[in-house]
Amino acid sequence: MELTVSPAPHIHGRLSASQCMYSVIIALLPAFAVSLYFFGVGALIVTLTSILSCIVAEYLIQKYLLKVKPTVGDGSAILTGLLLGFNLPSNLPIWIVIIGSVVAIGIAKMAFGGLGNNLFNPALVGRVFLLISFPTYMTQWPLPAVSRWSYTDAETGATLLSKLKEEGSQWVSQVNISDLWIGNQGGSLGEVGAIALLIGFAFLLYRRIISWHIPVSILATVFVFSFALGLGEELSASQTTGAWQHAFDFALIQLLSGGLLLGAIYMATDYVTSPMTSKGMIVYGIGIGILTVVIRQWGGYPEGVSFAILIMNAFTPLINNYIKPKRFGRA
């Protein structure tokens, strides 16, 4: 009898790369349910188109361009498609969604060498490409729970962040924060339901798919930074009464609106494009947090999470190079 011989270890922890991918997909399902409730059929069309076109793009590129065995079954293309869809308004025409998917898979992923070699988060590259190329389509946000059965003809309105940018922080007092928790706000279709996104986060932590470092450091940075800004504004306007409450509301709105939760929990934690050590993850998270607030506050766009993550993606190799794990026996 021929015995099998291989080097130790002889057992494996059973967690596979595709399991990781599918777990993230499962974690995103509650948020998908929320978006279906608020944006109706448009959310369904955009998300499915995005997923399907990502799968097809990956399959065609691998089979006919690279001439390798297609690996669409590993779940990474599905995840990219799902995340790209979540980052788009639910009234976006199908052809734009397809362009975004092709850019995400073809340029951001395959051109860099496929799974594991891409420098930037593919879904975000797709989204930012569309945002820059089709700014009108990409900044018309359907109103939540208004026109569930209409797609590209849905009634649109501004997002909270753009209102905040236009009308200043005084507008804070008019925001109903409980709407933000459940997702009753305009925005990209997957980013609205804070509670749903947090449920997914808890699931991922429980399954040990991701660690807390990146999301928590991003959220904490944004909160602290926004709180300080809100407080500074009130105090400079010499409104001492209720300044703390106002700053707190302002920071909480920053946390719950726009793509921050979706970005911090599901996009910034993408394995391939984020640092490998926990210390590095915290540095990366703080960087994303600061950039997000800076772009939101002083930049040309009302929302800056995608740009912040992409910029920090570029720093990931540098962080990996200089921030080493805590070595055993080195105080």
Binding site: G114, L115, Y271, M276, R330
Partner: peptide
Amino acid sequence: INPCIRCGKCVEACPMGLE
């Protein structure tokens, strides 16, 4: 064997704090 997805699980698991 699949490509490395740089998940950092090995870094997390290493008892000597290596990469």
